[in-house]
Design a binder for these strands. Sequence first.
RNA 1: CGGGGCAUGGCGCAGCUUGGUAGCGCGUCUGCUUUGGGAGCAGAAGGUCACAGGUUCAAAUCCUGUUGCCCCGACCA
Length: 568
Amino acid sequence: MRLSRLALATTKETPADAEIVSHQLMLRAGMIRRLGAGLYTWSPLGMRVLRKVEAIIRAEMAAIDALEILMPAVQPAELWQESGRWQAMGPLMLRMTDRAEREYCFGPTHEEVVTDYIKRDVRSYKQLPLTVYQIQTKFRDEIRPRFGLMRAREFIMKDAYSFHMDEAGLDREYQAMRGAYARILDRMGLDYRVVAADSGAIGGAKSEEFHVLAHSGEDELAVASEGGYAANIEAAVTRAGDGPRAAPGAALKKIDTPGVTTIAGLAEHLKVPERATAKAIVVMGESGDPVLLMLRGDHTLNAIKAEQLPGIAAPLTMADEATIRNHFGAGPGSLGPVNATVEVIADHALANAADMVVGANYDGAHFTGFNWGRDHPEPRFADLRNIVAGDTSPDGQGTIDILRGIEVGHVFQLGDKYSRALNLTVLNESGAEVVPQMGCYGFGVSRVVAAAIEQCHDDAGIVWPAAIAPFELVIVPIKADKSQAVRDACEALYGELKAAGVDVAYDDRGLRPGPMFADAELIGIPHRIVVSDRGLEAGRLEYKGRADAENSDVAHDIDAIRDRIGHR
RNA sequence: CGGGGCAUGGCGCAGCUUGGUAGCGCGUCUGCUUUGGGAGCAGAAGGUCACAGGUUCAAAUCCUGUUGCCCCGACCA
């Protein structure tokens, strides 16, 4: 590609409304342009990257015999009403009406459509297992789109769906897809982790997420130093407090803590570590009465765990101050289990704790020396908290470290949730109708482009992994308009590299060297060859890898260049 | 949805408090010079100051409303 024909649109200045590096660099490199909130146009340069990502995905899908299809982006409401998700999806779904007042949505996902599609053509167990996928534009009306492509409303996703006669078949395909996702990210050269995940609204049993590691990642991942345990912090289970509970060593004693309403303040006031205190959080129960949740002072509540507990209302709702005062006679910041009239559920880290500091249910007062059993009946203990760095891994092997990641893939074992709702059945060997098991497997195509940049950049711009770079190599001429020799050498080199199958860019824009170098670095081309009279006279070309600190020489020879850039 | 902010040439911004000819940097175009890290000189184009009302002799500037966008939070296959 001659860069004079690419409609490159790089900028020196960073657009004001871009917060994170990938968004800034994609705008500066001219890969994308914003149309509206969460809506982006892909430029010719951006498309080159997108197509390379798609090609890798298609190759790995083909390798596990997944079949590509393309379903409509616009979907009739009826299907969603059948599955019950027309209501459940709520405002996340962009809805529209046609001229005949029929209702549609712009698909946020395709479980319903794919199940309906399979239902029409699959009748017999002989046709299963079957895995189909598409690379499609989705729309989710996120409450707050942000970070450019990282959380766009319209985005490109590869979504795959598998159908099986039984759970064993589903599990096999799940493992195959999991392997394919790992190979996709391996080929892209990205540092990632596979973690256990919460299934969320989509339902189903087993699910894992693929996260590209990056400091700007929105998700926190709990990863064990040994033994391989890894989970999204939302789903990471914690261990109960180790060892037996110490016998009470202090009497329950009420102390004045005027103005102290936070754990930090309490620890400071009493000169005790935060972990010696217990915090109280009041949430609404299913019955309508509040429930008191107790956590160790230095721990935080995991809302997903809490709302999954029987007796607690989902979605998790914090009690308002009036409700709290009504039941406890004190405000938030001074609450505790002593004489509480509501159900108490304590995090199991507190199961073996003794002589705790807790709120007194009087404003401006706390108790020291609080002990379960003696000062309040034994509560229900449950896993309520977020795991933290330094915790022992749930499987007992190693300690937990917290990493940040960008979710680019999610694999689910759905079971029969959708096949049953949409009446998908096939006949088994004995002629009986069976509801197939389903898996679904999402991969964020546009998001992984942004994630790659988050992981691979420096001060000058993007440092693409070779497999998804817009070009493999760029030829930069010096003083081309003065030197016929330079022009001829560039043209010859360009032609030969192209013929050799190298994805080569030739910067024939006639710019000065500075801007050409800056653009090549900004858009992140992995390899650069500079052609100058100086080098030509010596029979050498100048080479620099995008991540290299220094230039080096390479012989003026196609094979030498291919060798240097590791082509084929 | 709650809270905060912004809207002035393609991009980044000043001007608004105290109403009176719309400005700067970058970019773009032309010419000459220049050519190993975002060149210099000379010239030029380009703006219904988000939109709609209002106040005023006069509104980018003051008032009211609307829209769009950004940030924090909740939300999120």
